[in-house]
Design a binder for these strands. Structure first.
Lengths: 243, 243
DNA sequence: GATATCCTTATGTATAAACATTACGAGTGG
DNA sequence: CCACTCGTAATGTTTATACATAAGGATATC
């Protein structure tokens, strides 16, 4: 999955899934075509129907199969293309690259949210949240710049945390699990502040990541991360599909 | 939930998963803490252990739980943050936005691959592949520019396809399912060609997506997609996690 | 005290059986 | 010919049971 979206799979079910995948990739079973039903496959693979079911559900989750009750299972006309990103903690990313991690907070204060942020997180415009800006470094060089809004109403313990010292990213990961998240990428030319904090040039193309998370009390945080020029964000594995 | 990586889940298992998720989000069960074992939860929820197992495996897949044989299940110290992107067919994206789709191929010819591409796909440098460049339009305005390399050795039928007419993206989706894929985002300042084909200015920040796919015969295709300035690529749903 | 060994426990996987649910498609009646 | 009904086939979900496997912890050994 991009890896396997779901957890680990069992040997036998796994084997069945691989074999079905192979038949699809090698055009033994073509797109749109109906494949044998669970009972038949169970006989062929000498397994219980439940095991075949597990394998086929896995493949359906990957988007390779379309399954409908009574109608049967068929190879997806256009395999859904899914990719799973794992967003690591910044410090881990930096240290994994063999660099020394450090970070610095450049601003932190309560402030009414601008309209675009309000719209993104679903709060009334002008609501007062904690606003902060910080830069994460690898071996002293800017790695990423984050511009973050925090909502104390969704995470009360947040009031007590000292983000001049603590890393907001890590604090949130450890103390404020979320129920829903949105993630988006875009590109922007570095503005004056971006350029200064990332120590690059005005106009330099920057990869921007926007992330917002919610729990049952409302939005927890929304952040705009600007990566150092040339940075790639990618997947390691991807589920099967088309293209 | 994220699209829940895996397909749909069952009512009862689903309910158990939601309840466990709630207990974690509301700090009833804290990070690192061990939760009751499957047998106990089965009694509490009046379900079979297999059902509890299904629910917990789902949550483990989301990264909210860490499970180990004999050691039991505990709330993940730092919930893995995963986001699933669904890469749609360009035409669908454009049409879904209510625009008229069209595309134009600007170049197509066999050519030896440059070293960086060779390294990315794992082929010897200088190998000859099909190289093509095309622009996809929405209502006549450039939507995205793709620079693609195709490997006939991994998809033989490819030789017969006429990509001056056909949309390579769609042809591949329908005819060349893959087993593995890599996806990465970055940002680049538009070069002269990007600017001309996307009808924008030199230096404009562009969101770049790189995608490479493989089947059992080797790399099928690798493509660099440059999006129209201001374009966002994002997720709709994301699995639970931290931050 | 350090190390090796075994027992026990919690999860991992598979199976058979049963019932729920959906919707295809045939049959019925107008 | 159309609309409606209903039987039935395929998947969806749960359950009970059984055995496999990993690893924590106690015990035994040196």
């Amino acid at each position: 999955m991009i890896d396997k979206p779901a957890g680990s799979t069992s040997p036998k079910a796994q084997h069945i899934a691989s074999e079905v995948r192979r038949r699809i990739v090698e055009h033994e079973w073509r797109q749109g075509e109906r494949i044998p039903d669970e009972a038949d496959l169970a006989i062929e693979f000498d397994a219980a129907r439940a095991t075949v079911n597990k394998a086929l559900q896995l493949l359906a989750g990957e988007g390779l199969l379309d399954r409908r009750r009574r109608a049967g299972t068929r190879v997806a006309i256009d395999p859904v293309r899914k990719a799973t990103f794992t967003i690591s903690i910044v410090r881990e990313q930096v240290e994994q690259a063999g660099m020394a991690y450090s970070h610095r907070v450049f601003a932190q204060r309560k402030s009414p949210i601008p309209d675009d942020i309000a719209a993104r997180v679903g709060l009334p415009p002008g609501e007062v949240l904690v606003h902060m800006r910080a830069v994460h470094y690898g071996d002293g060089l800017p790695f990423q710049l984050e511009d973050r809004w925090l909502n104390p109403r969704a995470a009360p313990e947040l009031e007590k945390a000292d983000f001049w010292q603590l890393n907001a990213n890590e604090w949130l990961v450890r103390n404020a699990p979320y129920l829903r998240a949105e993630l988006a990428f875009s590109a922007e030319n570095a503005n004056r502040r971006d350029a200064r904090l990332l120590r690059t040039q005005l106009g330099q193309a920057l990869l921007i990541m926007h992330r917002t998370t919610w729990n049952d009390l409302g939005p927890i945080t929304t952040v705009r991360v600007a990566f150092q020029p040339g940075h790639f964000v990618g997947t390691e594995k991807t589920t099967a599909g088309g293209d």
